[in-house]
Design a protein around this nucleic acid. Structure first.
Length: 277
DNA sequence: AAGAGACCCTGGATGC
DNA sequence: TGCATCCAGGGTCTCT
C-alpha cells in the first residue's frame, strides 16, 4: 500500500528514469474506470503531444506537470504500480493505462484491484487543495500540529489516516508512529498533552524519514519503478507483527480494529485510554 | 464534527 | 478436490 515514502520513492525513480522532458505520443486505456477525469476520449486527446515537465509528489498523489499547463495526477491506492519499460516488453497482468513516450518506452500503470485513479486537470488544486499539510515540509511545526490536534475529538488513528488533516499517512505508518509516540490509537486527539502532541509530531516524521531511507515498505504489492521491493518491512516495529514481542518491552503485540482498520499496538507501551487514570 | 456503513475490486485464506 | 464465502484496504460518499 503505497503511502508517502513509497510514492516519494516512485517519483524519484521516475525522474531518474528520465520521464521529465519525455513527450507523450499515445495513451491506451485498458480499464476505463481508472480514468477519474475527464472522460476517456478527452483524456487521451488532451494528453497526446504534451511533454512531461516535472514529476513530484503531494500526499499520496504522483503529480506530473505538463507542457500545456495541465497536470496529470496518479493515485496508486492499494495495488497500483508504475513501470517504465521499452514499448515491446511483455505486458504483465493487470495493466490499466499505458502512456507511450517519445523515446520508444512506455509508462505503464498496473493495478490489480482497480482502485487506483488517474486525473488530468487544468487546476490540480481541485484535487490537491483538499489535502492537509505535508508532514516532512519544514513548515510542518510541532506547535501547529498540536494546535490542530486540540481542535479535534476524533480518535488518533482515523485522524492520522484523514488526508485532510495530514497528507500521506496510511495504515502502516499510522500504526508505527503511534507506537513510537507511545499513544493508543483510540486516544482522542483533544486529550493529548503538549508533550504527547510533540512526541506524535516527532514520531510521524521519524517513521516517514526512516521508511523513505529504506525506499518504502513492501508488504504485499508495492514495488518501485524498477520492480524492486522496498526495505522498510524489515524495520517495522508493530505493523503486522501481532503475536510477536514488542521491540521495546517484550509484551506480545496485539491486533485490533479501530475505525474499521486493522491496527497493531503494544498494549503495555500504548496504554488504553479507558485504562488510564 | 464525527461515526457508521456501503462501495469499489481481486486474490488469498478459510470453511464446508 | 472443489466450491462458496470472507476479508483487507484507501478513499469517497451517504446517512444519522
Amino acid at each position: 500500500m503505497p503511502e508517502l515514502p513509497e510514492v516519494e520513492t516512485i517519483a524519484g525513480d521516475l525522474r531518474r528514469a528520465g520521464l521529465p522532458d519525455q513527450t507523450i505520443t499515445g495513451v491506451h486505456v485498458l480499464w476505463e474506470r481508472t480514468v477519474a477525469t475527464p472522460d476517456v476520449a478527452t483524456f487521451r486527446e488532451r494528453l497526446v503531444e504534451q511533454t512531461v515537465e516535472t514529476v513530484s509528489r503531494r500526499g499520496k498523489f504522483l503529480r506530473f506537470d505538463l507542457s500545456r499547463d495541465e497536470t496529470l495526477l496518479i493515485h496508486l491506492r492499494m495495488t497500483g504500480r508504475l513501470y517504465i519499460v521499452p514499448s515491446g516488453d511483455e505486458v504483465l497482468p493487470h495493466l490499466r493505462v499505458s502512456f507511450e513516450l517519445g523515446d520508444g518506452r512506455q509508462l505503464r500503470f498496473h493495478d490489480m484491484r482497480k482502485f487506483g485513479r488517474v486525473y488530468l486537470l487544468r487546476d490540480p488544486q481541485a484535487v490537491l487543495g483538499k489535502l492537509g499539510p505535508e508532514p516532512l515540509d519544514e513548515g510542518f511545526s510541532a506547535s501547529d500540529f498540536a494546535a490542530r490536534l486540540r481542535l479535534r475529538r476524533m480518535m488518533l488513528k482515523p485522524l492520522l489516516l484523514d488526508q485532510r488533516f495530514i497528507a500521506g499517512i496510511g495504515n502502516i505508518y499510522a500504526d508505527e508512529a503511534l507506537f513510537l509516540a507511545g499513544l493508543h490509537p483510540c486516544r482522542r486527539a483533544q486529550t493529548l498533552s503538549a508533550t504527547e502532541a510533540e512526541a506524535l509530531h516527532e514520531a510521524v516524521r521519524h517513521v516517514l524519514v526512516a521508511a523513505l531511507r529504506d525506499r518504502g515498505t513492501t508488504i504485499d504489492d508495492y514495488r518501485t519503478v524498477t520492480g524492486q521491493p522496498g526495505q522498510h518491512q524489515e524495520s517495522l516495529l508493530v505493523f503486522r507483527r501481532d503475536g510477536e514481542p514488542c521491540p521495546r518491552c517484550g509484551h506480545s503485540i496485539e491486533r485490533l480494529k479501530v475505525g474499521g482498520r486493522g491496527t497493531h499496538i503494544c498494549p503495555r507501551c500504548q496504554p488504553s485510554p479507558t485504562a488510564q487514570t
